[in-house]
Every structure is written in structure tokens, then in C-alpha cells.
Amino acid sequence: MANIGNPKDYLILTNNPLIVECLQGKGAWTIDFRPELKFRDVLVTARDLVYAGHLLYTHPLSGSVKPNETPYKSVILSVEPHGMDNDHAIMIANAIEVTDKFQILDWSHSEQAMKDFRLIDYTLICGAIGFDALSGLSNKQSL
């Protein structure tokens, strides 16, 4: 069983393809790529995992791009169910409540905006796990 805080215990729940392209196989973490999930659905899935005893490793509202302005969301949880943490349950519930306050914006017509949204989400996760975001990006052909 992986200790709390060990990268082996990182479950990266994401709907962002850039996470898979740059981080898959680059560390001990596990990536659960769910492209079909919308921003809010990622949070709800994370919430259910928190209820099942998985810990949150990253803040669900990371990034100053507001919820629903970006379609992409990545949350790191524990692979192991270490036991439900009340503070984490409140945090993820608050995050869903906050998300519902923001209008859903559709930027799918702007590929550059979508690329930027993927990049921001990816770099925030890199910062959290201490992975060099630039080297991850240079390993792929283009964004």
C-alpha cells in the first residue's frame, strides 16, 4: 500500500488530453483519463471518490480560470482509500456549489483558447506533483 504523499498514491482524474500526452508513464502516478466528463462531472466523480475514502491531494478549484470558463479539470486524489476526510468532503462540495454559480461558456470555436485552457490545467498539475512542465511539453510534437 502506497503511503500518503507518495507519487504511487497519485490518481490524476482528468478530462484534459494534454495530461495524458505529457504525463503518462513519466512517473509513478496513475492517470484516469475521462474525456467524456464535463468540468462539473469531474468534480462530482472526485466527490464520490472522497466519499469512498480517497483523499484529495490538490485543490479542486485550482487555477484562476473560473469554473465553467474552461472545460478542462484535473484533480489528484489518492489511489488508496485512506479513510474519508471531512475537510476534503466539504472542500469538494463547496467546489461543486461554486461551479454551479458560473455560467458555462463554450470556447470550442477557438482552438487557441482551448489549447490555452489545456495548458493552464496541465501546468497547475505539474506544479502540484513537482514535474517539470516544460520537459513534458517538449516530449510531445505540438500542443
Binding site: G63, S64, I120, T123, L124, I125, C126, G127, A133
Partner: peptide
């Protein structure tokens, strides 16, 4: 200080506050 990650950074004497 804002320090969430790349493009969300603040520097103190050149050090990334994160």
C-alpha cells in the same frame, strides 16, 4: 502570494514563491 503554478506565479528576490 499567488503561487499556483506556471503562469500563476509571484517572485520574491527572484525565487518562485511556490
Amino acid at each position: 502570494l499567488q503561487s499556483q503554478g506556471l503562469l500563476h506565479d509571484t517572485y520574491v528576490y527572484g525565487v518562485d514563491a511556490k
